[in-house]
Structure formats: structure tokens, C-alpha cells
């Protein structure tokens, strides 16, 4: 059976009870810091903060491990390649004609931290908020419903495609497809039956989804959309939002050139 809710992991804590808009605001603030700031310490602090928030919010460790598993190859590529593109500064390592400089290494660490901190900032709302609540939050923040729904469905079905991929891979293996004990090229080729079947299944799913949405009146004009869930900011939500705003202001000040 295909079972996935995208990035969302069920749980109960103060973080799950926080208004989804505040959690989105947190992600936005972290990403803003990552864009504005070039201070490694600040970015490392933002990355650490997201881990602390996730831990204090009792988000299952599985979410963090899965995110790191997905991120690590990208982080490794950035750390390895970025120094090669920055030849300026003091050379710390020479490999043939390649010069690795201190500035290059620093830039690699900076970019890797930017990416990781942004991703974990985003994980806070994604892991703790069902896609439909995020759509509601976007809508109440003034985003057109269609756009919010597209974002919500994309988040949810990304996870579902992952589950579908696993199901199809299992089905192909059950038909004798072998992935183990081959060279890299053969292994890559062995994934073709799974990837092609996944694309076909995804296209069919999107067709069915379009029918399912239309059959229940999506896109009907002339009526104002209503919702079962109305998000209401409580005092604690405002407090958290103010705290995030102050932290963002502090981070911006720290990031200004001296």
C-alpha cells in the first residue's frame, strides 16, 4: 500500500500547536538570514537552532535523519567543488595544477551551511504541518488558493511518489530484477524499468487527480471558497512571531558589513 504524507510526521507538542503561519514565518526568517548573511558562525547557529526547535518540539528523529541523508550528498559536492572555483587567497593545498585556498574552503563551508540551514529551517513547518494546513496558512496570508493548493499538493505528492517508487521497485525485483553485485553502469540501467514505470504511474495519478479535483467543484467561479479550518493567532503565536522577528532583526544587524 502506498502510504505517505509528504514531509509531515505526526506528533504532538507546542511546535505542532503553533499556528502554521508562525512556523512558515520561522522558515522565511531562517532562509532570509541564509541569503543575507555571509557569517559562518551565524549560519551554523541558524542550523543548530532548527535542530533545537525540532528536538524541543518532539519531532521524531527519523525526520532529521531522513533530511540529512538527502542533504549529505549535496553538502559533500558543494564542499568538494566550491573551493576549486575560488583560486584567490592563501594556498593551503596543491594537487597538480589545482590550488585549494583558505578563501575557497571558507566559501565551500559557507555555501554548504547556507543550504543546510535553509533546508532545516524549511523542515520545521514541513515536518510539523500537514500540507492542507500549509495551504490554509498560505491562503490566510493572502496567497491565491490555487497557488497554495499547488504547493500543498506538490509537497504531499513528492512523498507519495517516493512511496510509489519503492512499491514499483519491489514489484520489478519480484520479477527478477537484480540490483546487487553489478557495475555502476549496469546498476544504473537496472533502474530504467522502475523509473519509466514511475513516470507512467505519476502521469496517470496526475490525470486522476485532475478528475478528482474537478468532480468536487474545484475552480468553480462565482462562489467564495470556505474552509472547515480557520486559523486563529493566539497570544503564544504572536509571542513566537515577535520572538522570531526580533531574532531576524538581530541576525540582520550582525550580518551588516562593519
Amino acid at each position: 500500500m502506498i502510504r505517505s504524507q509528504g514531509f509531515y510526521i505526526e506528533g504532538q507538542s507546542w511546535l505542532y500547536r503553533l499556528d502554521p503561519r508562525v512556523r512558515l514565518w520561522y522558515a522565511g526568517a531562517v532562509i532570509a538570514v541564509c541569503i543575507i548573511s555571509a557569517r559562518i558562525g551565524l549560519l551554523a547557529g541558524a542550523l543548530l537552532l532548527s535542530h533545537l526547535v525540532l528536538a524541543a518540539g518532539r519531532v521524531r528523529l527519523r525526520a532529521v535523519i531522513t533530511a540529512w541523508k538527502a542533504l549529505l550528498p549535496l553538502v559533500a559536492v558543494i564542499l568538494l567543488l566550491q573551493p576549486l572555483f575560488v583560486p584567490q587567497g592563501e594556498i593551503v593545498l596543491e594537487i597538480g595544477s589545482l590550488h585549494i585556498t583558505a578563501k575557497g574552503l571558507e566559501t565551500g563551508v559557507l555555501y554548504a551551511l547556507r543550504m543546510a540551514a535553509s533546508a532545516f529551517g524549511l523542515l520545521v513547518p514541513l515536518a510539523t504541518c500537514p500540507a492542507s494546513r500549509l495551504v490554509r496558512a498560505f491562503e490566510q496570508l493572502g496567497l491565491p488558493y490555487r497557488l497554495g493548493l499547488v504547493i500543498g499538493l506538490a509537497l504531499q505528492y513528492l512523498g507519495q511518489l517516493g512511496s510509489m517508487y519503492t512499491s514499483i521497485l519491489e514489484a520489478q525485483q519480484a520479477r527478477g530484477l537484480r540490483l546487487e553485485g553489478r557495475n555502476l553502469m549496469q546498476r544504473a540501467r537496472a533502474f530504467i524499468p522502475t523509473v519509466v514505470a514511475l513516470v507512467i504511474a505519476a502521469l496517470r495519478l496526475s490525470d486522476n487527480l485532475a478528475l478528482g479535483l474537478a468532480a468536487r467543484g474545484f475552480g468553480v467561479t462565482g462562489r467564495k471558497r470556505t474552509t472547515l479550518v480557520q486559523l486563529v493567532m493566539r497570544a503564544t503565536d504572536w509571542l513566537a512571531a515577535v520572538g522570531i522577528t526580533l531574532a531576524l532583526a538581530g541576525a540582520v544587524l550582525l550580518s551588516l558589513p562593519r
Binding site: Q5, R223, T226, T227, L228
Partner: peptide, 28 residues
């Protein structure tokens, strides 16, 4: 439809049932 997968795209049972009502503008 025959395949429920394309029809169930909300994240909770109650939101699934309410989703179409929202499109028709039914009061909360």
C-alpha cells in the same frame, strides 16, 4: 471513481470530506 488514490488528496478524514464543500462556498 474506481481508484480512490486520485480522489483522496487531503491530509485528514474531515478535511477530505469538507474540501468539496469549500469549493461550493458552504458556510463553516
Amino acid at each position: 471513481m474506481q481508484d480512490p488514490l486520485g480522489q483522496l488528496f487531503n491530509t485528514s478524514v474531515e478535511e477530505e470530506v469538507a474540501w468539496g464543500l469549500g469549493n461550493l462556498g458552504v458556510p463553516r
